[in-house]
Design a protein around this nucleic acid. Structure first.
Length: 494
RNA sequence: GGCGCGUUCGUCUAGAGGCCCAGGACACCGCCCUCUCAAGGCGGAGAUCGCGGGUUCGAAUCCCGCACGCGCUACCA
């Protein structure tokens, strides 16, 4: 009988949550969902020096924003609590102690300098930089002497000096390492904190993790973990090493590549469901055609054998496209609700407050034009003021002159003021006829009106826009346009 | 330097011996639609499947070698 699938995401709170981290979280969660397993979050805060206050909350906020819930972990608790490693120190210390007693680990008194020198020497000699110092074979007396002069040692794990360590990686297949090339790595630092290696192995075992799905950069430390499992008498979980995510220069995605923090994408107004879909496609695919699919469908079709082995370059342009796709799928009310906080943030103060019912009339006009919520203000600002800012000269369309443009504006003013129905269909019928009468093409006439009404040369359909703005505002803007154009042309003639 | 992993259009990918002189998507170009911008439709360009050897009637797919890229090589994760 197969055991319950339990996977975990184990971020270390050392900075802003990163696309790479979150993609790993997503794959773990997808895998758990795909087989009815549990997804646990565990905070690996064993590096006190690099610890960044608030980083843990940022990670958790990201997961929540992306709608990736966890079954156990911080904020939700669970049967294996605590899920924060700094609260579990005694567990690791006891295990390190027992390893020490059994002779599988030993105290090491070497200084960093000495270690660095040894590594350099080995490197020039063409050897691996690994392997142990002589602390491994010290006598008890020698240790006592060292301790007196050097203070607290670190605890190193003694790797086997012969044989190979093999893993059957769920994604990469069989991989093996020669043991004598492996380093005697530190499991307990001199401050009493465990290193990653001891802590993961311990907690993955204690928390009953069945599958370790982590980034490929961890593959080289897998033999260490396997040997630790063995020495501790624990059954190892299954391992699967996920392809890493690269920046445009094909090196591991990192801060120097610019926007890599997930929170930045939230600030920019990417839709979380688009980010999730997009990240899932970084290393996984359903088939040869389908790319846009809801997360439930990704989860129900998610299998490890469809994960790629090769690293993937993060393509922001495609993400933007996908965000637009999801944007268009939203209902009016939903989109309006999501836009609101962005408009409140980005619109000038005198345009506020934004009323949701009014916004919902605007949304259908801009929905298929907006890719990011942070663009919402650019697309809608002229709905929230009296007269938009623009260069009056842009009123004059190709093939027209100032006088003709002024005439067109004044004629439109009259029509707008006197027409009975102000719905877009009537307006279009009416103004089309007027344009023809003036001898202007639709492009010209509507171009003049577009600039006058919206202040821009690219905007949603004119007549729907007018309908939403209402007769008074439209009339005001047409009038203002005529005045401003008149002024400019006069001042330039002088 | 050592160890490990990887290598299909610029990018994400499909492909598990004949369906592939390689399919889809983003980006790009053109046309259509059209009041502008989008969205949409149609079409185009773009990959000698890293290279060289094998195996086979037949290889992107299997084997070997090489090259290149990336990762790891901390009292960081």
């Amino acid at each position: 009988m197969a055991e319950e699938v339990r996977v975990r995401f184990a971020p270390s709170p050392t900075g802003e949550p990163h696309i790479g981290n979150v993609r790993t979280a997503l794959f773990n969660w997808l895998f758990a969902k795909s087989c009815g397993g549990k997804f646990v979050v565990r905070v690996e805060d064993t590096d006190q020096e690099r610890l960044v206050p608030g980083a843990m909350d940022a990670v958790l906020d990201c997961l929540e924003w992306l709608n990736i819930p966890w079954d156990e972990g911080p904020r939700v608790g669970g049967p294996y609590a605590p899920y924060i490693q700094s609260e579990r120190l005694s567990i690791y210390q006891e295990l390190a102690e027992s390893l020490l007693r059994e002779g599988r680990a030993y105290p090491c008194y070497c200084s960093r300098d000495r270690l660095a020198r040894m590594r350099d020497e080995r490197r020039v000699q063409g050897f691996t930089t690994a392997h142990a110092c002589e602390c491994r074979t010290m006598t008890t007396q020698e240790r006592r002497d060292k301790e007196a002069e050097n203070g607290a040692p670190v605890i190193r794990f003694g790797m086997p000096t012969s044989g190979v360590t093999k893993v059957h990686d769920l994604i990469r297949g069989d991989v093996e390492w020669q043991n004598d090339l492996q380093e005697d790595f530190i499991i307990l630092k001199s401050d009493g904190f465990p290193t990653y290696h001891l802590a993961v192995v311990t907690d993955d075992h204690l928390m009953n993790i069945s599958h370790v799905l982590r980034a490929e950069e961890w593959l080289p430390s897998t033999p260490r973990h396997l040997q630790l499992y063995d020495a501790l008498g624990f059954d190892p979980p299954e391992f699967g090493h996920l392809p890493i995510i690269l920046g445009p220069d094909r090196s591991k995605l990192s801060k120097r590549h610019g926007a890599t923090g997930v929170l930045e994408y939230r600030e920019e107004g990417f839709l979380p469901e688009a980010l999730v879909n997009f990240m899932a496609l970084l290393g996984w695919s359903l088939d040869d055609k389908t790319e846009v699919l809801p997360v439930e469908e990704i989860a129900s079709n998610f299998t490890l054998d469809r994960i790629t082995k090769s690293a993937a370059v993060f393509d922001r342009e495609k993400l933007e496209w996908m965000s637009g796709v999801y944007m268009r799928q939203l209902s009016t009310g939903d989109l309006a609700g999501r836009m609101l906080p962005f408009l409140e943030r980005d619109l000038p103060g005198d345009s506020l407050p934004v009323e949701q019912p009014y916004l919902e009339r605007i949304v259908p006009l801009v929905q298929e034009r907006v890719k990011l919520l942070s663009e919402a203000d650019e697309w809608t600002s002229y709905f929230f003021n009296d007269v938009p800012e623009y260069d009056p000269k842009t009123l004059v369309q190709r093939g027209m002159d100032v006088q003709g443009t002024l005439g067109a504006l004044r004629r439109a003013m009259d029509e707008v003021a006197s027409t009975e129905s102000f719905d877009h269909e009537s307006l279009e019928a009416l103004l089309r006829a007027v344009g023809a009468e003036l001898g202007l093409s639709a492009r010209q006439f509507f171009g003049v009106l577009r600039t006058a009404v919206t202040g821009r040369t690219a905007a949603p359909p004119l007549f729907e826009t007018m309908e939403v703005l209402g007769r008074d505002l439209v009339a005001l803007r047409l009038e203002s346009a005529a005045e401003r154009l008149d002024q400019v042309s006069q001042s330039e003639e002088l």
